[in-house]
Structures are given as C-alpha cells and as structure tokens.
C-alpha cells in the first residue's frame, strides 16, 4: 500500500537524521584549528622574480585584461637596458575574487597565487596592495623560467644569443 511505503519513507528519514545526531561534526574551529591549504590554493597574489633576481613582470596588462572584477591596474615603463617593467602595479584585494585568471593569463609566470588566505584588514584602503607589497624575493612556482631568455628581444643577453636564436643576420651578405 502506498500509505505504508510513505510512512516507511518518513520513518527512514527520521532514522537517518537520528543517526547523524551522534556523528562527529565535520566543523573545523577556524581561528584555533587551521588546515593547511594545498600548494595550488588560490589566495593572496604575489609577483615573483626570475632565477636571476630580476622582476618577472613585464606589465603587459594581460592580467588586468583578464581580471573579471578590474582589480589590477599598472603602468609599464622601459628600463635603460630595454627591459619592460611595471612602473607601478596595484591589486585591490578588496575587489579581488581570487579566480586565478590573472595567474593563468600571465605569460612570464610573474603573477602567482599563494595559499595565504588570511588577509583581512581593519581599513579597506589597506587592502590596496602596491608593487612593493606584492613583489617577493623568489621564483615561486616554475623556478627555472626566465621570460627574457626565450623572447627574442635581447634584454638579458645580446641580441641573437637567446635560448632558441641564431646570431643576427648580416643583411649585406651576398651568399644565397
């Protein structure tokens, strides 16, 4: 009979909730107990350096272009050796949604996300991080990569001596 199966369903439900009353709660008491996030956890953003100690960021604006909440702004500038770098670089963490698009868009692996998720501040203006707050002394993930060794414009090495480059062409050569 339908009514019997209905009552059985009610009783089954009640029985399941009854059992759960005696289960160990899954709650983690946050400030006292903390769990270790995985290394690829997406939290506070940093700017890394290449293995030679130079700033990886070339201020190409891809991260700010990819950012869905427009929390990244920067101004690029040119150094004496022709290196493109960020004159200033600002991430507004009060807007950031930690989606990781910026890190994915970054062609030089400069912008990376760290597992440090505790970045609350009393004053919201303190959440506006400038380049000096973001730049770290380290390579973060991918420690061996130096963008300028691969992009053929010659900043870290003379033109034509990069990783996949031939020496510059002699335009006046006559050989075929």
């Amino acid at each position: 009979m339908k009514i019997l199966s209905d009552i059985a369903a009610l009783v089954t439900g009640m029985w399941i909730t009854w059992k759960h009353i005696f289960r160990r709660p899954v709650t983690i008491q946050y400030p006292e107990e903390k769990r270790t996030p995985y290394p690829r956890y997406r939290a506070r953003i940093v700017l890394t350096r290449d293995p030679d100690g130079g700033e990886r960021c070339v201020a190409c604006q891809l991260c700010s272009g990819a950012c869905p909440v427009d929390c990244i702004t920067m101004q690029s500038a040119e150094d004496k050796d022709g290196r493109r770098y960020a004159e200033w670089f600002r991430i507004n963490f009060s807007r950031c949604i930690f989606c990781g698009f910026c890190a994915e868009a970054c062609p030089t692996l400069a912008i990376q996300m760290t597992p440090d998720f505790e970045i609350c501040k009393r004053d919201i203006m303190d959440l506006v991080y400038e380049k000096e707050d973001l730049l770290i002394d380290g390579c973060g993930k991918s420690p061996d990569y130096n963008y300028y060794r691969h992009a053929g414009i010659g900043v870290t090495q003379p033109r034509g001596s990069g990783a996949e480059e031939k020496p510059p062409v002699d335009v006046r050569g006559l050989l075929p």
């Binding site: 053929g152 033109r159 034509g160 996949e164 480059e165 031939k166 020496p167 510059p168 062409v169 335009v171």
Partner: peptide
C-alpha cells in the same frame, strides 16, 4: 624546434 633568425 629549430632556431629563430634574428636581426639588429
């Protein structure tokens, strides 16, 4: 995978 030509 070959090398790239460069110019000055």
């Amino acid at each position: 995978s070959g090398k790239k030509r460069t110019h000055v």
